[in-house]
């Protein structure tokens, strides 16, 4: 370790490790230890139960679709916000963070009312014969809402810092605007896009507040995994809740690790 004359390393490091241990390390380890108290058979029975499997499926597919759509629209929003000047730009830029600032329960309740059969948007979809609320489409809408800022906020700074010269160079070499985007700009923003996508995905997998209102929560249909954990807890089935929770946790971590590896690989690839 390099010695440093700045004061306060001991105390700040002490506070930090103590705090992280107490609030993060110990609780998560406990969750894993608690699972270990189940026998493997019990564990497998719980986590492969049909209703549980279905909840994973709903959670995974909706989170994936929402994160994917967020990646597309997030890129579009980031692009427009960085590259163009138009009325209301500052306000819109601020508004992007609304889903972070608004309590998830409020978001869920609002979206459920808006997309419900009698809601402002809901009645319109109802006429088209596409119900949104209380279906998995509703879950996707809720997850799109809460995941909206992730991709925008990851991509925006990268676009802002992109040197103008490389684009100008590409154009001067005869590339069309589309080719410039495809070959010069897009590769630069892929890591940020992936990071935003993975954050939105992880958040979507675990989201509870905004989803319970709009999902309808019908077992085998629109019941997401976090909700299942909740109902197990309400029946004081702690072992069941823990088992499902651990699987969810591992799923999120796996995604984050995969994306991390992809990003690293991409960066290496770029540097060559």
């Amino acid at each position: 370790m390099k010695k440093n004359i700045l004061p306060g390393f001991g105390i700040t490091m002490g506070i930090t490790t103590l705090y992280v241990s107490l609030f993060v390390l110990v609780p998560i380890s406990l969750l894993l230890i608690k699972t270990a108290s189940l026998s493997l058979d019990e564990f497998i029975t719980i986590v492969t139960n049909e209703r549980v499997m279905h909840a994973y499926k709903v959670s995974l597919t909706t989170a994936f679709i929402a994160a994917f759509l967020n990646a597309i629209f997030g890129l579009l929003l980031a692009w427009v916000l960085v590259r163009y000047r138009f009325p209301g730009r500052r306000i819109i830029d601020g508004l992007i963070d609304l889903p972070f600032a608004l309590p998830t329960a409020v978001a869920g309740m609002t979206l459920a009312a808006l997309y419900g059969p009698e809601g402002w948007f809901g009645q319109f979809f109802q006429k088209l014969g596409i119900p949104i609320a209380y279906t998995s489409s509703g879950i996707v809408i809720a997850l799109m809402f809460i995941g909206l800022p992730f991709v925008v906020r990851m991509v925006q700074p990268v676009l802002e810092n992109l040197p103008k010269e490389t684009e100008e160079a590409a154009t001067s070499l005869g590339a069309s605007r589309f080719q410039t985007f495809h070959k010069v700009i897009f590769p630069e923003i892929v890591p940020a896009l992936l990071a935003g996508f993975s954050l939105a995905l992880a958040r979507g997998l675990g989201e509870y507040g905004s989803v319970v209102f709009i999902a309808g929560n019908m077992p085998m249909k629109t019941e997401v995994a976090p909700l299942l954990i909740m109902s197990k807890l309400e029946q004081f089935d702690y072992a069941g809740a823990t088992a499902i929770g651990v699987v969810m946790l591992l799923l999120s971590f796996t995604f984050l690790i995969i994306i991390n590896i992809l990003q690293k690989w991409h960066r290496k690839h770029e540097l060559r």
């Binding site: 930090t16 490790t17 992280v20 609030f23 993060v24 390390l25 609780p27 998560i28 406990l30 969750l31 608690k34 954050l199 992880a202 958040r203 997998l205 675990g206 989201e207 509870y208 507040g209 976090p226 909700l227 954990i229 909740m230 807890l233 702690y238 809740a241 823990t242 929770g245 969810m248 946790l249 999120s252 971590f253 984050l256």
Partner: peptide, 26 residues
């Protein structure tokens, strides 16, 4: 590692966060 641990609560479902404290203190 410390950085990842600090960011960890973002990747953990709030429901699981609640569950962890139930396992401790119930």
């Amino acid at each position: 590692l410390l950085l990842s641990l600090i960011e960890l609560p973002f990747a953990v479902s709030p429901v699981i966060a609640g569950l962890m404290f139930i396992l401790f203190f119930s």
